[in-house]
Nucleic acid binder design. Structure first.
Lengths: 340, 340
DNA sequence: GTGAAAGCGCTAACAC
DNA sequence: GTGTTAGCGCTTTCAC
């Protein structure tokens, strides 16, 4: 089977035409008569011919798009991937995912590997690289970056980007809580590892500050980490204060789960004694037993947008595009009016 | 940069040798003097040469292994993938993931695409295909199937397989519950969609039955679905009975979460009134607020084993291997002695 | 031990 | 509108 592969020459012989003609029909290129089209198509079907991607790669495209994942465990990757594959379903492009790991080095190795495999374009999800590295990759292949905000003026023109509007997401939460009557609203964020910038947690924290200011309220940001433990520790510290907050907005659902545990342990009932909101709307947030108010990023739209932009780039657009997807607040059982 | 790619000819020129020599050095093949080895290696470094995978594919290997994912949302995929990539880290193989979807058709399209891209071997995770289709793929490329039990005698010789020992996992749960004093232990399984066989849930249910029988207890299997709702509905039905079970073993954690909700709503406390156990040990099972007793599959070992077997196959083994990985029971807060 | 040369399957000029 | 042909970058006999 491997060696007995059907080639374009077999099809040409069968249809009684040249290989060039077959190639044109396969690619849907210009200059083929309906008659030839029919003959070739029939021969292809009879023989079960499928173009050999590697051979194509040597001259033209591979019709392969790569998606580099920075962290396979990230709970909204599946949505983004579904968005990407859904958008590409009826095209001839195939999507392959590359587990890049969380280290800049392993991510670089993966993007190199994808370029070596002649992929036609790359979607990088939350890449941990310098803008210079990103620009270098974008110089070699069309690139769309997902999940990194704005950043580096000039060099960013080399690639397109899609982000969740994290400022808006944070504002939705604050507005919701203020609307319920809360005034002491704390925010738990992720402790920054100096190097990368424009990361979602930074933007969410900034959005929170802006929104609080807009309401004339004092902000209160605590940086731990986006883990269950991080949320737990942060909440424990916040709840130990004299004038403890009546609401805690965690920058990620996983941390919000830790906050809920801290509330449990402190004997506080949610949402009566403490309102809790998260970000990302991960699957379990909707479980009745959790029922966490959260900001939904609509990974489908993000993925579909990234796919659309990438194909546009491949097909010739050179002007760079930065797309921002609006999040939605999903109100559930963990937020309510503060006790009077 | 794209057009300015460094080729083997550039390296050969720089080192003052033939392209054939460079090729041998790159592949670590026989018959190269130490001196040539040194010259070539230096030229490669100076020029930053990386072999072009597509060009290699036309003659030899691509050093690319494909992992077909049947359902990106499956919570233990990340572990399996980490196991695979971890095992391959220090080899020259690269791993690319293919989102195959849950339909046989889309999965077939993905495996075709991977074969068209000349991947050296494929790992198929929980593929939904007939054994004949699997055999056809295995005839074209080395294959390791993960998550499908035994099955089709003869044809299975065409590929290797790695499975979790689901019979053992089910027994661990039953033994644990019986040891605590339970006798009325019910099992919630997934309603079978006729076609595929040897699927984990079937084997888990069978393992549960065997274990119950071994203890001289009557089994009690209810088939709903492996969703939160499925677990909820199943548990509601079970708990409405006169002699309701004192323990429910759900064949998947997600369903166990539904069972917990049903217990909450019925006013039963866990584990005093009802013990609950799941399977898969998904991330949130360990959250203090959930603390679900569950069976852990060790996806790392499963992934690493699959990678090892695949590489062995590629390098020549023809005898087929079926590997079974032992699961572990993680006892947490949802199981305890029944109320007397 | 090393190099020359023939392809692998396909695409893209360029002739016809 | 269709066919001929020259490579793409690499691997692999086969001479030397």
């Amino acid at each position: 089977m491997t060696s007995g592969r059907v080639t374009i020459a077999d099809v040409a012989r069968r249809a009684g035409v040249s290989t060039a003609a077959v190639s044109k029909v396969v690619r849907g290129a210009y200059g083929v008569s309906a008659e030839m089209q029919a003959k070739v198509t029939q021969a292809i079907d009879e023989l079960g011919y499928r173009p050999h991607a590697a051979a194509r790669a040597l001259r033209g495209r591979t019709y392969t798009l790569g998606v580099m994942l920075s962290d396979t465990r990230n709970p909204f990757f599946p949505d983004i991937i579904e968005g990407v594959t859904g958008r590409l379903r009826d095209t001839e492009y195939q999507v392959l995912l590359g587990p890049g790991g969380i280290e800049p080095r392993t991510q670089a190795r993966m993007t190199d590997a994808m370029i070596d495999r002649s992929m036609d374009g790359l979607i990088l999800i939350s890449p941990v690289m310098t803008d210079a590295e990103l620009a270098a990759i974008a110089a070699a292949v069309p690139v769309v970056v997902v999940g990194r905000h704005g950043g580096a003026g000039a060099s960013s023109a080399a690639y397109d980007s899609v982000v969740d509007d994290d400022v808006m997401g944070a504002r939705l939460v604050v507005d919701h809580l203020v609307g319920l009557g809360h005034t002491r609203i704390a925010h738990i964020t992720h402790l920054e590892r100096a190097r990368a910038q424009g990361l979602p947690h930074t933007v969410r924290a900034e959005g929170y500050r802006q929104a609080m200011r807009a309401h004339g309220l004092a902000d209160d940001v605590l940086a731990t980490s986006f883990t269950e433990e991080g949320g737990f520790e942060g909440a424990r510290e916040l709840l130990a204060r004299d004038d403890r907050p009546t609401a805690i907005f965690a920058g990620a659902d996983i941390a919000a789960l830790g906050v809920l545990r801290a509330a449990d342990e402190a004997g506080l009932s949610v949402p009566e004694d403490l309102s809790v909101a998260g970000y990302d709307n991960i699957g379990i947030a909707s479980l009745k037993r959790i029922s966490l108010t959260s900001v939904d990023q609509d990974g489908h739209v993000i993925g579909a947008t990234a796919a659309r932009l990438l194909v546009e780039r491949i097909e010739g657009r050179s002007r760079s595009v930065a797309s921002s997807v609006s999040p939605t607040l999903i109100v559930r059982g963990t937020t309510g009016p503060p006790r009077l």
